[in-house]
Design a protein around this nucleic acid. Structure first.
Length: 611
RNA sequence: CGGGGUGUAGCUCAGACUGGUUAGAGCGCGUGCCUUGGGAGCACGAGGUCCGCGGUUCAAGUCCGCGCACCCCGACCA
């Protein structure tokens, strides 16, 4: 491709409002342009990158026997109503009506549609398992899109769905997909961590996320410094401490006046203590049971873990909600000043006075973080008062549980060593769905014995457009993108220093034609050398061939994007080999060697990355 | 959805507080000269619904009100 005929409009200026390096570089390089908040055009060079990523994903999906389909982005509401997600996903759906007034939705995801398709065609175990996928646009009306392609309202996703006769078969496919994902990220040279994850509204019991560590991400995961176990902070568990707890009621409560000071942060300032010197009490309601959760002041209640605990251990199945102001009134406490010490007495008193129904129950659950605390501060269940000087065994609790979100330094549930927290961007997420969608949408099949059963399903997503940002976040620097071998829009950037110099022009033309199999972008503009070098660096093409004055001596320079070798040695191969491959390049070599060198490097890299 | 901010040339931004001829700069774009190993130089030129609507005023890019859009922080979120 000749630059002069191409659609490339680079900019020296950072776009206003771009916070992430990937966002800024993509705009500056004219890879994408913004149409509206969270809605982007892919311009020619950006679309080339998208297609490169797309191709790797397709090849790996094909390799595990998945079949590609293309489903519509525009859906009627009925299928979504059948699964209940018309309501539960309402907050992110673009909903609209057609001219007849029928409800429609722009697809946020495609479980409903694919399940509907399969239910119509597949009736027998003989046609299962079945893996179908698409690479298509998704719409989510995110309240706050940000970071360019990091969180967009319209974005490209690869979504794969699998259908099975039984769980064992799903387990096997889940492993196949897991391995396919590992290969996809390896081939794109993206350093991902796979972490245990929360299934969320998609549903199912088991899920993994593929995360890339970057400040540009919006998620967090923890990884054990010893055994390497990794999990999303949404679900990461903490090792249970050796608990030796004997309730010792305190003789005299020491109450302090804390006027209009209720949050831990305010208390820290008011009393001059650390957050760890507080026990935070958070009240939840589950049916007629109130749950008072105690966590150390520097930690947060994890509602996902709490919900699991309440359902699995306490066997209470009603919906859990945060207590409201009238709940506090009912229990004789005050919002912002609730605490565990005298709350049960208050409730007993209210019940005796017939001011509170006997059905109401209160359970006090202490997070592991509260265990062993001495001399802490808790709410006094009285406006503007806290108790001080409390030890953990002065608090009468019903049970200890792991119900707080992991923070740096918490102990690994597997081996007991310390966790570290990493900021991350989620690129892929795989789920075991079970029959969550096959039941309501009647995706049934006849088994060998003629019994009609619902199909067992899995679903597996990759944020294709988000991957583009992730690659740049992983390797790029302020004024220079770095693409990886399989994502680079071009492999070679050919610079002709002086287009008016006939010798330079002719040789450039020959090299351009001679390397036509290697995706060459020829900067054939009558611009200054500096302009061309800066553009090469900005758009991040791995190899640069420079045709300049030295051509008189039959010499040509080959340069490598200095960050590019990092994207290869990331792949656990011999780094000495990599440096050898590139070290001899940033010098002048003879004209005859150029084609040979480029072919050699290309083939070696192809073997390493895709082999 | 809460808080904050911005909206002026294709882009990045001055000008607004303190209203007053014809609204500016840099970059980019066009033409010519010159230059060709690190975003060169000179000259000329094109390019504006100052986000929209309404109001105040002799006079509004500037002040006031309403609206819209976009950005940032937080909450939210496969």
């Amino acid at each position: 491709m000749r630059y002069s005929k191409y659609f490339l409009f680079t900019s020296k200026e950072n776009p206003a409002g771009a916070i992430n390096i990937s966002h800024s570089l993509l705009i500056r390089g004219s890879f994408i342009s913004q149409l509206s908040s969270g809605i982007y055009n892919f311009l020619p060079i950006g679309f080339r990158v998208l297609k490169k990523v797309w191709k790797v994903i397709e090849e790996e999906m094909d390799r595990i026997g998945a079949l590609q389909v293309l489903m519509p982005a525009l859906h009627p509401s009925d299928l979504w109503e059948k699964t209940g997600r018309w309501q539960t996903m309402d907050n992110v759906m673009f909903k609209l009506q057609d001219k007849k007034g029928a409800n429609m939705v722009l697809g946020t995801t495609h479980e409903e549609i694919i399940t509907d398709i399969v239910s119509k065609f597949v009736k027998s175990y003989k046609n299962l398992p079945l893996l179908l996928y698409q690479i298509q646009v998704k719409f989510r009306d995110e309240i706050r899109p940000k970071g360019g392609l990091v969180r967009a309202r319209e974005f490209i996703m690869k979504d794969l769905y699998s259908f099975h006769t039984n769980w064992e078969c799903l387990d096997k496919t889940y492993q196949d997909v897991y391995q396919a994902y590992v290969r996809i990220f390896e081939r794109l040279s993206i350093p991902v961590e796979s972490v245990e994850a929360f299934s969320g509204p998609i549903g199912g019991d088991v899920s993994h996320e593929f995360m890339v560590v970057t400040e540009a991400g919006e998620d967090k995961f923890v990884k054990c410094t010893n055994c390497g176990y990794a999990a999303s902070t949404e679900i990461a568990q903490i090792k249970k401490p050796e608990i030796n707890y004997k309730y010792k009621p305190i003789d005299k409560l020491n109450k302090v006046h804390t006027p209009s000071v209720s949050s831990v942060e305010q208390l820290v300032n008011f009393l001059g203590k650390k957050p760890q010197n507080f026990v935070k009490s958070v009240l939840y309601r589950v049916g007629s049971t109130y749950i008072l959760v105690l966590v150390r002041g520097d930690k947060e209640v994890n509602e996902i873990k709490l919900e699991k605990y309440i359902k699995n251990e306490l066997k209470i199945m009603e919906e859990i909600s945060m207590a409201k102001e009238d709940d506090f009134d009912r229990l004789g406490s005050v919002i912002g000043f609730i605490g565990p010490l005298n709350l049960k007495d208050k409730i007993l008193f209210l019940k005796n006075e017939k001011k509170l129904s006997d059905e109401i129950d209160l359970k006090i659950i202490a997070d592991f973080s509260v265990y062993g605390l001495k001399d802490v501060i808790v709410g006094a269940n009285e406006k503007d008062y806290h108790f001080v000087g409390i030890d953990f065994d002065n608090i009468e609790i019903d049970s200890f549980a792991d119900v707080s979100t992991v923070i740096d330094g918490d102990k690994c549930v597997k081996c007991g060593e310390e966790y570290r927290i990493f900021p991350a961007l989620e690129l892929g997420h795989i789920f075991k769905l079970g029959t969550k969608y096959s039941e309501p949408l009647k995706a049934y099949f006849a088994d060998k014995d003629g019994k009609i059963k619902p199909m067992i399903m899995g679903c597996y997503g990759i944020g294709v457009s988000r991957i583009i940002s992730a690659i740049l976040e992983a390797y790029s620097s302020e004024n220079s993108m770095t693409w990886t071998f399989n994502s680079a829009p071009f492999f070679v950037y050919l610079i002709t220093i002086n287009m008016d110099d006939e010798a330079q022009y002719k040789i450039s033309d020959n090299i351009y034609n001679g390397l036509s199999n290697f995706e060459v972008l020829w900067d054939d503009r009558k611009e200054s050398a500096g302009t061309k070098f800066k553009d090469w660096e900005l758009i991040g093409i791995p190899i640069c061939i420079v045709i300049g004055n030295k051509i008189k001596e039959g010499l040509v320079e080959i340069k490598v994007n200095p960050n590019f070798p990092k994207t290869i040695s990331n792949k656990k191969i011999n780094s000495e080999f990599i440096s050898k491959l590139f070290d001899s390049l940033s010098i002048f070599i003879t004209l005859q060697e150029v084609e040979e060198k480029i072919k050699h490097i290309y083939n070696e890299l192809d073997g390493i990355v895709n082999g």
